Simulated assay, not measured.
Amino acid sequence: MRNKISNILWGLIFIIAGLGFAGNVLFGWNFDLFFPGWWTLFIIIPCFISMIRNGFGFGATLGFIIGVLLLLRNYVEFSIG
Rank of each mutant, 00 (worst) to 15 (best):
W38F: 08
I49G: 01
N3E: 14
F31V: 08
N74C: 10
G18E: 10
F58T: 11
A17W: 13
F58V: 05
L9F: 15
G28N: 09
V25P: 01
V25S: 11
L33M: 07
A60R: 03
G20Q: 04
F56S: 12
F27K: 02
W39H: 04
N7D: 13
L69P: 02
G81N: 12
I49R: 04
G23P: 06
L33W: 08
I13G: 06
I15C: 07
E77V: 12
M51T: 08
G67E: 01
A22I: 15
N74F: 15
L72K: 04
L41M: 11
G59S: 03
F78K: 01
F56I: 07
F58N: 06
I52L: 11
E77A: 08
G59V: 06
I49K: 03
N30L: 08
I43H: 04
L72T: 06
L62R: 02
F56P: 01
F64S: 06
P46R: 03
W10K: 14
I45V: 15
G81S: 08
R2L: 12
F58I: 10
F27I: 09
I8T: 08
I13K: 07
F78E: 04
E77C: 02
F35V: 10
E77T: 13
G28A: 06
N54E: 10
T40W: 10
A17D: 09
I65H: 04
G11L: 11
G63K: 10
N24D: 12
A17L: 10
F48Y: 07
I52H: 11
W39R: 07
F78S: 02
I45T: 04
D32L: 09
N74T: 02
G81P: 08
G67T: 12
L41F: 11
I49L: 13
L71G: 08
I8S: 10
R2T: 14
I8L: 15
G20E: 02
F64P: 00
M51Y: 05
L70P: 01
T61F: 15
A17K: 03
I16K: 01
F14E: 06
I80K: 11
N74K: 12
L9K: 09
R53F: 01
G20L: 05
G81C: 03
N7H: 12
R53G: 02
G18R: 12
I16E: 13
E77F: 07
F64D: 01
L26C: 05
L70M: 11
F64W: 14
W39S: 06
G11Y: 13
I43L: 15
W38N: 00
G57M: 01
S79G: 06
G18S: 15
A22N: 04
V76F: 05
R2M: 14
D32P: 00
C47R: 05
M1S: 14
G57S: 13
V76C: 00
N74R: 09
E77D: 11
S79P: 02
L72S: 09
F48C: 02
L72C: 13
I65Y: 10
L12H: 01
W10I: 12
C47E: 07
F21V: 13
F14H: 08
I45C: 08
I13Q: 07
F21A: 07
T61G: 15
F48E: 03
L9D: 09
I15F: 14
F48T: 00
I44F: 05
I44H: 04
N7C: 07
L33I: 05
E77L: 13
F42V: 03
I65Q: 01
S79N: 13
